[in-house]
């Protein structure tokens, strides 16, 4: 065995390296944020929010992309929220110990980490081709499929934290299961469920790949869900790769907006969780 001094030296070295790695990770986050602020902030003019996307050199904005993103995220929540909430409740209450429950939990874990671009391809094949074109509906539904697993997982985890005694007390009073779930368990886990929804919104807001084949993007103002619809990530993708300086600047402005939004949602959800515990 190595001498005590040598073992201590090794211990210290590894501790220093590990600390360095942690600092490096934070440095990377700071570097990304700095890049976004340095390049995005100068381009973040009022016209970004008031003008729609325009040809290069015409002082365009991102209004249609921002509104399109909001509409598709809202659609994803309206469709995916209830399904996710019910499925998460199913896994925590009725599905426990059943074969269908375990299978659904397994499948949900797969969907949670499955490549999001494949969800886009699936909706393209399943909805876009049969219904004859790219649409806001298709984009919203693709995002709904990404939102569901996040909500299912957090809902199940949060409901599992609710003491069984609470449920038993409600059942003992003669309450039917729907009342027990809606008025006791959901209420007790409310903050946690909200956290899941915030995280789901954060995920949907930044997704680009699934929208490429579903809502496609749209360079003019449109809130018609049956037509191709603009979105912030698609606009960023289109502009960042363009050779025009003003478009690239606009892409950075959009990137800054999206990242700040997504990170704030994440931090907010963590604060809600911290208060719960």
């Amino acid at each position: 065995m190595a001498s005590l001094a040598a073992r201590r030296a090794k211990d210290t070295t590894i501790k220093v390296i590990s600390t360095g790695f942690a600092i490096f990770a934070i440095f990377l986050l700071a570097w990304i944020l700095w890049t976004l602020v340095a390049r995005g902030a100068p381009a973040l003019k009022l016209t970004v929010f008031t003008n729609v996307t325009m040809p290069p050199g015409h002082n365009g904005g991102l209004l249609n992309a921002i509104v399109g993103s909001l509409i598709q995220i809202a659609l994803a929540l309206v469709i995916g929220g209830p399904i996710g909430l019910l499925c998460g409740t199913f896994l925590a209450e009725n599905g426990k110990g059943t074969k269908i429950g375990s299978a659904a939990r397994f499948v949900n874990d797969i969907l949670l980490s499955a490549p999001s671009i494949l969800v886009g391809l699936f909706i393209y094949q399943f909805l876009v081709i049969p219904f004859g074109g790219f649409s806001g509906w298709a984009g919203g539904i693709a995002l709904a499929i990404l939102v569901i697993p996040v909500i299912v997982r957090t809902t199940e985890d949060m409901l599992n934290l609710v003491p069984v005694g609470l449920r038993e007390a409600a059942f003992a009073l003669g309450a039917p299961q729907w009342k027990v779930v809606m008025m006791v368990t959901w209420r007790a886990a409310r903050a946690g469920i909200v956290t899941g929804i915030l995280l789901a919104v954060a995920r949907a807001a930044g997704e680009t790949a699934p929208l490429l084949f579903t809502s496609l993007g749209n360079n003019s103002w449109s809130v018609d869900l049956s037509k191709p619809m603009a979105s912030l990530p698609i606009a960023i993708y289109q502009y960042a790769g363009s050779p025009f300086d003003d478009w690239v600047a606009l892409a950075w402005a959009g990137a800054l907006l999206i990242t700040v939004g997504v990170l704030l949602l994440n931090i907010a959800s963590r604060l809600v969780l911290a208060r719960m515990k």
Binding site: A22, A25, I26, L28, L29, I32, L36, A202, A205, G206, E207, T208, A209, P233, I236, Y237, A240, A251, W252, A255, I258, T259, V262, L263, N266, I267
Partner: peptide
């Protein structure tokens, strides 16, 4: 460290 996971994929691309 966890916030690194929250940054959207397209931002990493840019």
């Amino acid at each position: 460290v966890q916030l690194l996971a929250a940054v959207p994929s397209i931002i990493y691309g840019m």
